[in-house]
């Protein structure tokens, strides 16, 4: 029994090491394929549209409601200490440092990341990726590399949008509904947010973009490696794994980057 447990633990550990190595090779090859990819700007623009434009309404809605909740909760906590004037500081720093990059990334994983994993999984299943290889087209350069570049544009842009609509949501609940002076709120926002906070926000967003897009692409690209299922089930399983691993990666990377900036 003990030997079986040790064997199982060993197999799992080896599997994790192998998958991590495989993922690293995949990511490096995709980046290395960038200079050789033809019609790259066109493919990047298309990827920016697919990842970014389609997710705009979701990001805006989540951003507004996050700001509304931050304004509401923040006001009631700060009013205990008579510090309602610091509401703008609380909302802006919470949004810029944490909420915007993390929540925007999670929303993008749920919408664009899952779509990417499913699309690549279907392309693998229907031999479209094999067809590219037989034509002499680098499939990583054609399918994955433009999306990685697009993620570096889309994730920070969506985080910025999240901050803007979130601040507006905070102002809505704090000033309009709870009576904090708008001038006090916006001047607190202006005083609180420094260059390093914006750098933290955009560093996080760009890292999350690269990390989650490459995880989703990796899972979809290797949908056929799933030993427990095949066909449509394999695509569904790889999409689920892509969303789960990407979401975990966002939170782990968030802690790592936060500890670097604090």
């Amino acid at each position: 029994m003990d030997i079986l447990m040790v064997q199982s633990l060993g197999r799992t550990t080896l599997g994790i090491v192998r998958d991590t190595g495989d993922f690293t090779v995949f990511f490096t090859r995709a980046l290395a394929a960038l200079p050789k990819t033809r019609k790259l700007p066109r493919r990047i623009i298309r990827a920016v549209y697919e990842q970014g434009a389609v997710c705009l309404p979701v990001i805006a809605i989540v951003g507004v409601f996050t700001g509304l909740v931050l304004g509401l909760q923040g006001y009631h906590v700060l009013s205990r200490f008579g510090s309602e004037g610091l509401l703008g500081t609380l909302v802006s720093l919470s949004l810029v440092r944490e909420m915007a990059p993390v929540l925007a990334a999670l929303m993008l994983v749920g919408q664009a990341g899952s779509a990417l994993a499913a699309e690549l999984g279907i392309q693998r299943n229907t031999e479209q990726i094999a067809a590219l290889e037989t034509m002499g087209v680098n499939s990583l350069g054609y399918l994955v590399a433009p999306r990685l570049v697009a993620a570096l544009i889309v994730f920070p842009a969506q985080a910025a949008l999240f901050v803007v609509v979130g601040l507006w949501g905070g102002s809505l609940s704090g000033s309009l509904l709870l009576g904090v002076d708008p001038g006090v709120y916006w001047s607190a926002v202006e005083r609180a947010v420094e260059y390093r906070d914006l750098r933290e926000c955009f560093s996080k967003a760009a890292t999350f973009g690269l990390l989650t897009t490459s995880i989703c692409a990796y899972m979809g690209f290797h949908a056929d490696r799933n030993s427990s299922s095949a066909g449509a089930r394999a695509v569904s399983a790889s999409t689920t794994r892509a969303v789960v691993f990407s979401s975990i990666a966002v939170l782990v990377a968030d802690y790592a980057i936060s500890s670097f900036f604090v």
């Binding site: 990819t37 033809r38 019609k39 034509m135 002499g136 087209v137 054609y142």
Partner: peptide, 8 residues
């Protein structure tokens, strides 16, 4: 049809 010509 254009894909292989465009990319290679």
């Amino acid at each position: 049809v254009a894909l292989p010509l465009e990319q290679t």
